[in-house]
Design a protein around this nucleic acid. Structure first.
Lengths: 69, 69
DNA sequence: CCAATAAGTAAAATAAAATTGACACAATGT
DNA sequence: ACATTGTGTCAATTTTATTTTACTTATTGG
C-alpha cells in the first residue's frame, strides 16, 4: 500500500495539522499519521468522519480507479 | 444506523447470497449480514473489496449525501 | 414430510484497529 | 541557543472488528 497523498493534500488545503484533523474526528494523531502513511486499514466510519471534516467524499480520498471492474 | 439497503440491492442485482459475497471477499456470512444490518463499522479495505465484487464505488454503497457539508 | 439453502441473530474467542506514552528530527520564531 | 510545532515511528495496552459455533425461521424442491 502506498501513501494516501490525497488525504495529505486535502488536509493541507484546510491548513490542518495531523493533530488538528485527529482532534476533529476524535482519534489520535498516530492514527491519522498511520492512515496517511498507507500501511493501515481504518474503519469506514473513521474514513467518513475524515471526509466530512475535509469536505470530500469517500471516492475522493479512499477510492482508487482501477479498483473497479 | 439504518440498514444498508444499497448493499443489499447491489448484491441482489448480482444474484449473490450473503454467503456468496462473503466468500468472494474472504469474510464470513455473519460479517456481510452485520454490514447489511447496519449496526456495524467495517474496515475500509473490506468495503473496497465488496464494492469491487459488486461493480460499485465506495460512494455508491457507503457514502450518504448530507454527510458532506 | 424431509433435506437443503438463505437469512437473522447471539455468545465467546481471536485478529486487528486504535490508544497511550515516548523518543527523535526538521522547520519556525524569539 | 532555546522553545515550539509538525511529523515519523515504535512498543505496550485497550478497544473493537471479525471469526467460530450454534440456534432459529422461511423458502424451495424431491
Amino acid at each position: 500500500m502506498g501513501k494516501n497523498l490525497r488525504l495529505k493534500s486535502a488536509r493541507a488545503a484546510k491548513d490542518m495539522s495531523q493533530k488538528d484533523l485527529a482532534d476533529a474526528v476524535g482519534v489520535t494523531r498516530q492514527t491519522v499519521n498511520a492512515i496517511e502513511s498507507g500501511d493501515y486499514n481504518p474503519t469506514i466510519n473513521l474514513c467518513i468522519a475524515i471526509c466530512r471534516v475535509l469536505g470530500k467524499t469517500l471516492n475522493d480520498i479512499f477510492w482508487e480507479e482501477g479498483n473497479n471492474g
